[in-house]
């Protein structure tokens, strides 16, 4: 395992930091999404289908110092067999200019309905995940992240 190749050098880190500062300085966000925007996106996807709490583990920092890079890990409980697996997972952030963050499509070959990504958060807000099971059942989970320096000038 070459873990070392993943560690940015000092120069790269400095560069990223500078880029981040510049981005923050240049990026006043005009319009923010709201809970309604997230609800509207969900309505487009699934209509008025009911959603149950549970099954989803949202792994997020409680406090994100840098809103430009917030680690997000979603893990949905499922046997991931041909007859019972997680089809899709949608992640939304209700305080970003655009609510969508990422949409995953899993298959039984995924083995695990889990994935990690890094996202931008413009301000302190809720991150919402919705999972669609192979039988059509929907589950949802929500977590709040406090953002110290927003990913968008806030």
């Amino acid at each position: 395992m070459q873990l070392r190749s993943w560690t940015p050098s000092r120069r790269e880190t400095m560069g990223l930091g500078l880029t981040a500062l510049l981005a923050a300085a240049l990026a006043p966000c005009l319009v923010m999404a709201t809970e309604e925007a997230v609800a509207a996106e969900l309505k487009k996807l699934y209509g008025d289908k009911p959603m149950a709490d549970g099954k989803i583990k949202l792994d997020l920092p409680e406090i994100a110092e840098n809103g430009l890079v917030v680690p997000l890990n979603v893990d949905v409980e499922s046997p991931m067999t041909d007859g019972d697996y997680v089809k899709a997972v949608h992640v939304f952030a209700d305080g970003n200019p655009l609510p969508q963050v990422v949409t995953y499509k899993f298959t039984p070959q995924s083995g695990k309905a889990a994935a990690s990504v890094r996202m931008r958060l413009a301000q302190t807000q809720n991150v919402i995940a919705v999972a669609e099971m192979s039988n059509g059942t929907l589950y949802t989970a929500k977590a709040q992240v406090k953002v110290t320096i927003g990913g968008c000038g806030g």
């Binding site: 981005a23 890079v69 952030a93 990422v102 949409t103 996202m119």
Partner: peptide, 12 residues
Amino acid sequence: FFEADWFTSVSA
């Protein structure tokens, strides 16, 4: 076996 749609909220 796996697809991800990324939106603008995904980090650089």
